[in-house]
């Protein structure tokens, strides 16, 4: 290839690139301006496991069976079962704590729960400067369930 060909090809390839960029310039930007306009979450987006409230009774579905605690790989759920004055165990959790700083949002606890007590919320603005703030208590998790579009996807169902 002679020098002239090389120069010609180089110029041509660069002209193609410039044509592409100038064409893109006159298209609408694809940016979503995040805090002002929030992109919609897809149905079933996962961000944090939350405790579901039973519509009929207004109580938690959770019976403190501890299956989710055991199935959580990084062990970030801690459940203490409620006991009454006589020392008898009660079917609800006294405390239900979730350490979101460890949680890898894997959905395994939700699949493990046989009582439909856990769901995945789709709130992502949970960051904090203090790592202690990422340990969510039972009330906080219930609150999150109420304020988000939580959903349970498990067991090969079709979405």
């Amino acid at each position: 290839m002679g020098l002239f060909d090389r120069v010609w090809n180089a110029a041509k390839s660069m002209a193609v690139g410039h044509a592409i960029t100038i064409r893109e310039m006159f298209h609408r930007p694809v940016t979503v301006r995040y805090p002002e306009e929030k992109p919609p979450f897809e149905r079933g987006s996962r961000s944090v496991p939350v405790l579901k409230v039973n519509e009929a009774t207004g109580l938690l579905n959770c019976v403190a069976c501890g299956l989710c605690e055991r199935s959580c790989p990084p062990s970030c759920i801690e459940i203490v079962q409620a006991v009454d004055a006589a020392g008898k165990k009660k079917p609800w959790p006294e405390t239900f704590e979730l350490d979101l700083s460890h949680c890898m949002v894997c959905n395994l606890c939700i699949e493990a729960c046989p009582f439909d007590a856990l769901e995945m919320a789709d709130v992502v603005e949970l960051s904090s400067y203090q790592v202690q703030d990422l340990i969510f208590s039972k009330d906080q998790l219930t609150e999150l369930w109420k304020t988000s579009k939580a959903l349970r996807v498990a067991g090969g169902e079709r979405i």
Binding site: E24, M25, F26, R28, P29, V30, T31, R33
Partner: peptide, 13 residues
């Protein structure tokens, strides 16, 4: 602005 619009962004706003 030019870099933004070329890259399909808004640039500073």
């Amino acid at each position: 602005k030019v870099s933004g619009y070329i890259q399909r962004r808004y640039g500073p706003l």
